[in-house]
């Protein structure tokens, strides 16, 4: 087992190096650089743009160096000194920006994840055990609809309904009076209230997918001989189902933990923009469009590292849960 883990971790290194290069190139791909964006913005506002200033800015940010030098400076600072650089756009250290938003992003995504599991597990089990019942059809249909509705559309519809029937505006994560207030009971309550719509929106598509997977997997298990054996031995039906086939059917849930990790940070991008949430997604979009190289690069790198680690964790969990995989 240990050898396996070490091997997997070693495999991660070349992947991560490749990803860091791709991430950096990806951001440099558009024509022009951050200074071009800045100059365009300034001339749009009617300011005169002084070419010497621009040249000085380029020099200051190291933008006139060849791209490999830029990459080397960037990555060596990260690896050797843990310094992610400064955001051009916000003019603050990248790590501050990300840390500021990471907390709320994690709270939101964890709530959505728990919501997904709490809803989808029982429904999936019910759907499989009572196959072809009215409840199963309703659940399956809703699951298909949940998969078909884009998150941002659901967000818009829920916003519209909340506005129309309750007269409340649901964007953001805090009401205006709590925005800059220190943490207190009232603020937590306010946050919880604001979380409802985003959590529903983010949880829906995941719930729909997991209900389908759970149902299919449990159906595969339900008619195996060991279930009949357990039944013949006189176990009560629900106890039997929950103790044996459900446990075996849980494997796919475990393998989604790996995807959940980067999803926790990035997944909500489109929804977050619609609902105006102060999470990392909109930050990344803005950084990409403004060619804020260090910020966007750091975020993509972070997400990729999370994906790779997440995959590793779910593989390990899977091996721990299912001995058949371990000894293969």
């Amino acid at each position: 087992m240990l050898a396996y883990i070490v091997k997997r971790v070693l495999y991660m290194i070349p992947t991560l190096i490749a990803i860091s290069i791709v991430a950096f190139l990806l951001i440099q791909l558009p024509p022009g650089d951050f200074v071009t964006t800045l100059a365009a913005e300034m001339s749009q506002q009617g300011d005169t743009v002084d070419p010497t200033t621009l040249r000085m800015l380029r020099e200051q940010y190291g933008l006139d160096e060849p791209i490999w030098t830029q990459y080397w400076l960037w990555i060596s600072n990260i690896v050797l000194e843990g310094d992610f650089g400064r955001s051009f756009d916000w003019d603050v250290p990248v790590s501050d920006l990300i840390w500021n938003r990471l907390g709320l992003t994690l709270v939101l995504s964890l709530c959505a994840l728990i919501f997904t599991w709490v809803i989808s597990l029982p429904i999936g089990i019910y759907s499989a055990v009572r196959k072809y019942s009215v409840g199963d059809y309703v659940a399956s249909f809703l699951a298909f609809v949940g998969l078909a509705v884009p998150n941002f559309l659901l967000a818009l519809i829920l916003m519209y309904l909340a506005y129309k029937f309750f007269g409340i505006s649901v964007d953001g994560l805090f009401s205006a009076e709590y925005e800059d207030a220190p943490w207190s009971g009232g603020k937590v309550l306010d946050l919880a209230q604001h979380l409802i719509v985003p959590v529903i929106v983010l949880g829906t598509s995941g719930t729909a997918a997991l209900v389908r997977i759970m149902r299919a997997n449990l159906l595969d298990e339900l008619y195996k001989p060991y279930v009949t054996t357990a039944r013949a031995k006189g176990l009560s039906e629900w106890r039997l189902i929950l103790r044996y086939p459900v446990r075996a059917a849980l494997n796919p849930f475990v393998s989604t933990i790996g995807w959940a990790l980067p999803e926790l940070v990035s997944g909500a991008t489109v929804t977050a923009i619609v609902l105006n949430l102060p999470t990392t997604g909109p930050l990344l979009l803005r950084a990409l469009i403004a060619q804020d190289v260090f910020l966007a690069g750091a975020m993509i790198l972070m997400l990729s590292v999370l994906t790779v680690i997440g995959t590793l964790i779910s593989d390990l969990l899977l091996a721990w849960l299912d001995p058949r995989i371990r000894y293969k």
Binding site: T15, A18, I19, V22, A23, L26, I27, L29, P30, P31, P262, S266, G267, T269, V270, L284, L285, L288, I289, A296, M299, I300, L303, S304, L306, T307, V308, T311
Partner: peptide
């Protein structure tokens, strides 16, 4: 394939799409 899957999809799309002039 593994490499492409290791890059998170949404940032990858956003990065590439933002790169279209």
């Amino acid at each position: 394939i593994e490499f492409l899957l290791a890059i998170p999809t949404i940032p990858l799309w956003m990065g590439l799409a933002a790169a279209i002039p």
